[in-house]
């Protein structure tokens, strides 16, 4: 048995799956985008028509705008998670317990989270509006049913879901800042706030940059939660790229056009990955 044989034997199964179920499909998605196709029956080649339509499709760009807005919110909420992590790491008793409590929503399925928050946001009997009524608020908002609030309302369970995950990452990174450096700063008279902002934060900047990329690119792909909670509504107010694609394909049977949308999603995601990794590239070594 030669080494070549063994290497092939060990890598081929996984590699085949990767190629057949990920790489070939993304190429095909670009190709189907050139077709007029209802999903069943013959495809008809129509050149770049779908892509041209995509470029001037206001609904698509509105949903892309929503995706980016969610991405910006997500990146901003990282600051909140970072602040909590800084508190957690400062010799707090029970920090382990807190971290685990925070992580629980991350373990639930998007469907369970979506269904639960549908109930929380329920205009007449949900927890949120009942709470507001207890404080004497009249005319409580209808949240998901109002085009002006739907997207913001959806962002709340997203923050809720991912908080524990990012806190976990930051906490682990902050824990790895060498104690000697902090000790040295303290001896030199640095205040705890200075230590946090001028020593701990710069030391985990590499990790912070990774999380910016994770949350930004992750946001561009949001689907499950939104699909279950609002289906992109009301009137497209919470439509995102993935839900728009899904609707065009599996509800309206515009498989050709939806493939073009899917390919657009791919290009935007990879482009953003590349862009954020360029913008956040740094020379400092990651310290773990």
């Amino acid at each position: 048995m030669s080494n070549k044989y063994i290497i092939t034997l060990y890598t081929l199964p996984a590699l085949l799956l990767l190629l057949v179920l990920i790489y070939v499909p993304i190429a095909l998605s670009g190709y189907y985008g050139l077709m007029d196709w209802t999903g069943i029956g013959q495809m008809q080649f129509i050149g770049l028509e779908n892509y041209a339509n995509l470029m001037k499709d206001e609904k698509f760009w509105a949903s892309a705008g929503h995706s980016f807005l969610l991405g910006i919110f997500s990146v901003l909420s990282l600051l909140l998670y970072l602040a909590v992590s800084l508190v957690l790491v400062s010799k707090i008793k029970g920090s382990d317990f807190f971290r685990k409590i925070y992580l629980i929503p991350m373990l639930l399925s998007s469907v369970a989270i979506a269904q639960l928050w549908l109930k929380i946001f329920d205009p007449s009997n949900g927890m949120l509006n009942k709470l507001l009524e207890m404080f004497g608020v009249e005319n409580t908002p209808v949240w998901l049913a109002d085009p002006n609030t739907a997207l913001y309302a959806i962002f709340v369970p997203i923050v809720w879901q991912y908080a524990g995950f990012y806190i976990l990452i930051y906490y682990a990174a902050l824990k790895n800042v060498p104690e000697e450096i902090i000790e040295a700063a303290r001896i030199d008279g640095a205040t705890p706030l200075q230590i946090a902002l001028k020593i701990k934060l710069p030391m985990i900047s590499a990790v912070f940059k990774v999380t910016i990329m994770l949350s930004l690119v992750g946001s561009l792909k949001y689907f499950d939660l939104i699909y279950v909670m609002t289906g992109g509504g009301p009137n497209g107010a919470s439509e995102v790229m993935a839900s728009y694609m899904y609707k065009e394909a599996f509800e309206l049977n515009n498989f050709g056009y939806a493939s073009a949308v899917g390919f657009g999603l791919l290009v935007i995601c990879l482009g953003m990955t590349w862009l954020t990794s360029r913008l956040t590239k740094s020379n400092d070594d990651v310290q773990y």
């Binding site: 590699l15 990767l18 990920i22 993304i26 792909k221 993935a242 999603l265 995601c269 990879l270 990955t273």
Partner: peptide, 24 residues
Amino acid sequence: LVLGLFMVGYMIPLHSTLIPLFNF
């Protein structure tokens, strides 16, 4: 190269593969 293919695979949004996968 093989490792690179897997790493890039991590970046690919699964929604972009959904229609071709469905067809496949």
